[in-house]
Design a binder for these strands. Structure first.
Lengths: 350, 350
DNA sequence: AGTTTCGCTGCAAAGGTTTGCACCGTCGAT
DNA sequence: ATCGACGGTGCAAACCTTTGCAGCGAAACT
């Protein structure tokens, strides 16, 4: 039986509206009254009931953040950045995990809907139409997906995939595999589209393997298949899969990068810790988290907007990629420096 | 302007209470009426407002879960298990991250308090007295901490630390360092207490280094100090620190396990992926997550309880530990099989 | 025929808060 | 002396839902 506003009003001999104002509009109440009310509130351990407040104001000062899989190290930096950004704007973040399941995702958005001011949908697996429908129930910002009319922050993973393929072809690889991500992933489609185009431009063969679960196990599971295709280089949907794949290859006595080169995407911490250190496409997860919160808070109620933030990616070359059988392209500087991170930089500065 | 219960009532020509019952007690309303109401609700896109419902019933069907750091791979399995357990009981989990900051922790509990039916406090950094005070505002279940009168699930990390030290002394190590965790961590104190006792029992020297931030960087930062103490074996507060420490040692040309043995605690996925594979104490994180949810949901409103769940730990011997300078204990079987996981097993079965 | 039972529905209070409006007294200006 | 402005406070409606109670008609009893 926690103390309510009424208890405080009774105790301090004022009307409940005065107590209310003491907390939500202190300048409207006499300094003396205010301190008396505060004293009583403190004594009774009173805390305003946020749910009741939200009922009236329509503002909860909460933000929902839905991710496909917390265990994927790609997400924590994004989450942390979103949290600290939200905290600066006096909001709290509630995280929920969908287990890569579109049904759970929908359910979570609905559950969250009335308890938050908006939802950040990270790497959603739902259909566009369903997302559009949900956006009518609660303000949405979509991360890593483009949906007409919805605010979005996307990472330019197409550019990253292109850089990765060019890096591989530059090293003389002529047969490359793409290990795709999960069905329903916009990112996976983007990567595929871009990788195919880049491969064609370089005149090399690219075989697509997938869809696959975007986990270490998912990568490990395709090792056999990768070997059978006879490719000498692989681009994986994410670092986790790349790492799993390397494990799988090594356990079958295929050496990386000597026999097969592997490049991942995300640049998770782990990619610097495993051996060989992973060549990968760095995605600006923290910047994305900050940007998403900003977008949500920016246009309060005008739901439909065409605003989009596009974040650059960069290729980080480490030790999991090496010479291929073909001619070594003289155009490849051997130690590519990626383009400057415009989008990132502007956010990183804050 | 989402549809409310009133809109549905008007549209279907019944009283709002009938609409309410259609959703919360369907058997009380005529089948025909019910289907008409449902049809209207569907048409208008009506969803019951959970916040308003909670105001009356006092039940939100939400559970708060507060962790020190989502980026620590120790937590995701715990979180995932808690989520799936909660989902089975028709509840949702809201996660929040404190960044290892006791102040943020308190704030988050308060923010969550009125929007959830209870909070799972994982590895809290607050003082006991503050936690007790908060437990009067919202039902709490504490994980990895023992506080008189509060329901708790703890991992028997003392046992794990003892096994680890015995393992090291058995290998002939006579000078061991303990790299402690963060200030305010109950787990860190337990480990220390137990490790000191075990070392004393084996007649070996144990020097404590810390407190330290429980991260990879934290481990890396003490490498120099570890080398200076001249020990040949180290027990780290968690795997992340152990891994950071190994990196730090290797970069200073100290080989693991040849020059220094390292054992971690937690058995995160990563510990199998790095080289050398990490010897570590496995903690039943998933079981803890399930147990915590169960405890919270079990005793609905009788806040104060002495119920505690104690989960066993086990030592997993891999490649980061090796012979020390002293005599190799014949008592050490060389490949310790840990005790059966009673506590875990009973939960794992479900 | 009268009474009880039963299934269904409406009524209204309750839950904790915010907020536009009205009111009161005082002070400064005219 | 009168008026307006203003700081401070109280009043009551509103937000959306649940739920105990009462009422209604009809069926099933005695």
């Amino acid at each position: 039986m926690p103390a309510t506003i009424r208890d405080v009003a009774r105790e301090s001999g004022v009307h409940i509206s005065t107590v209310s104002r003491t907390f939500s509009a202190p300048h409207l109440v006499n300094a003396e009254t205010r301190s008396r009310v505060l004293a009583c509130a403190e004594m009774l351990g009173y805390r305003p009931n946020r749910a009741a407040r939200a009922l009236i104001t329509g503002r909860t000062y909460n933000i929902g953040l839905i991710v496909a899989d917390i265990a994927n190290p790609f997400f924590p930096p994004l989450i942390k950045a979103a949290e600290s950004q939200a905290r600066q704007r006096d909001h709290h973040i509630f995280i929920a995990d969908t287990n890569e399941d579109a049904t759970v995702e929908e359910e979570l958005v609905r559950a969250l809907a009335k308890q938050v001011d908006g939802v950040l949908l990270c790497s959603p697996r739902m259909s566009n139409s369903l997302i559009e429908q949900l956006s009518r129930e609660v303000p949405l910002v979509v991360v890593n997906r483009q949906i007409p009319g919805l605010p979005a922050v996307v990472m330019d993973v197409a550019q990253g995939a292109r850089l990765a393929v060019e890096h591989l072809t530059g090293l003389g690889h002529t047969e490359i595999a793409l290990v795709a991500g999960p069905r329903g992933s916009w990112t996976s489609r983007e990567i595929r589209r871009s990788a195919v185009a880049a491969a064609r431009a370089a005149g090399t063969e690219l075989t697509v393997i997938g869809p696959n679960p975007p986990t270490e196990d998912g990568g490990m599971a395709v090792a056999e298949q990768v070997i059978r295709t006879g490719v000498t280089a692989v681009l994986a949907y994410n670092d986790l899969m790349a790492i799993g794949l390397i494990e799988g290859l090594q356990s079958r006595d295929v050496r990386v990068p000597r026999d097969v080169s592997v490049v991942g995407i995300d640049d998770i911490t782990l990619s610097r810790l495993i051996r060989p250190k992973l060549t990968t496409v760095a995605t600006p997860a923290a910047a994305a988290g900050r940007a998403a919160v900003d977008m949500l808070l920016a246009h309060g109620d005008d739901r439909r907007t065409t605003a989009q933030v596009n974040l650059q990616t960069e290729l980080v070359i480490r030790d999991s990629t090496g010479q291929g059988p073909g001619p070594h392209s003289p155009a490849d500087p051997g130690n590519v420096i990626a383009p400057a991170l415009d989008g990132v930089a502007s956010y990183a500065k804050e």
